[in-house]
């Protein structure tokens, strides 16, 4: 069995974001990057499946982006993936979801993966398109938003999360792709021995130009901070003073304080 996990490297979401010089995405400077949170669940599920099947499946982890994404790939290798592929693209942020999916599909086509895991969406762009689009290009079944995963004899049974706490049970046959929702499992922390072991694992670099021959179907015209809602009071400074200020406001504006 061959498994592919697609991951993205994103900035810490608590960062302050500033537009880049072109004004179409964030400036990379002063940002700390990490693995997209949804993708950690995808990596974990792939590694759990490998363990369930006695280590037989080969788990390949792939990321599209500039050279910094190798750090995210190394983390996935330390979590238990077998080898990594960097689709090298310093301008990945200018690609639309269709192009990203097309580049991954061009790589995946010849590899005949039985199962593909992706995150539901990225934390920075949040299109939730790349996974499903990849499956459509490859002509394989796909299900999004999974919070439960079981595999037996070429058949995958998942729980899909719907709105309001409802879940749906869905079954599909491999080859298949699933997109992982937060809470699917508990992603492991790489241990020191596994980090050391991961240093010996292969990281293949493929220039995006060899894989991508599709034009963008959407283009970002501008990137900006949303206008602040006016009227909100901001309390800063000493905690004891803030407490008194807040209690004054609550007594004045609400009826709930006894």
């Amino acid at each position: 069995m061959k498994i592919l996990v697609c991951i993205k490297q994103v900035p810490d979401m608590e960062s302050r974001f500033k537009p880049d010089s072109a004004g179409v995405w964030y400036s990379d400077t002063d940002l700390a990057f990490r693995m997209n949170e949804y993708d950690e669940y995808a990596v974990e599920q792939a590694v759990q499946l490998k363990e369930q099947l006695g280590g037989e499946p080969e788990v390949v982890v792939l990321s599209v982006g500039p050279d910094r994404v190798v750090e995210a790939l190394k983390k996935a290798l330390a979590m238990g993936c077998d080898r990594a592929v960097q689709v090298q693209d310093p301008a990945a942020h200018l690609k639309d979801p269709w192009q990203i999916a097309s580049a991954i599909a061009a790589y995946a086509k010849g590899e005949n993966f039985n199962l593909i895991f992706t995150g539901l969406q990225s934390q920075d762009r949040g299109s939730a398109q790349v996974g499903v689009t990849l499956a459509e290009i490859l002509g394989i079944a796909s299900v999004t938003t999974i919070v439960g995963f079981e595999y037996a004899d070429g058949s995958v049974t998942v729980r899909r999360e719907l709105e309001g706490g409802l879940k749906a049970r869905v079954q599909l046959k491999t080859p298949a792709l699933v997109t992982c929702q937060l809470g699917l499992n508990v992603p492991r922390y790489p241990t020191l021995p596994n980090i050391m072991k991961a240093k010996k694992k292969e990281i293949l670099t493929l220039p995006v130009g060899e894989l991508l021959h599709e034009e963008a179907r959407s283009v970002t015209a501008s990137f900006y901070a949303p206008p602040k809602k006016s009227g909100g009071i901001v309390l800063e400074g000493d905690v004891a003073v803030q407490v008194d200020q807040l209690l004054d406001i609550l007594r004045d504006k609400t009826t709930v304080l006894r």
Binding site: P11, M13, F17, V24, Y26, Q123, D124, R125, G126, E215, A216, R217, S218, V219, T220, A221, S222, F223, Y224, A225, P226
Partner: peptide, 16 residues
């Protein structure tokens, strides 16, 4: 469209 966990926005133009 929102981005970066709703902290930022993008204006995106579809092609076609």
């Amino acid at each position: 469209l929102p981005s970066c966990n709703m902290k930022m926005r993008r204006t995106v133009k579809p092609q076609g």
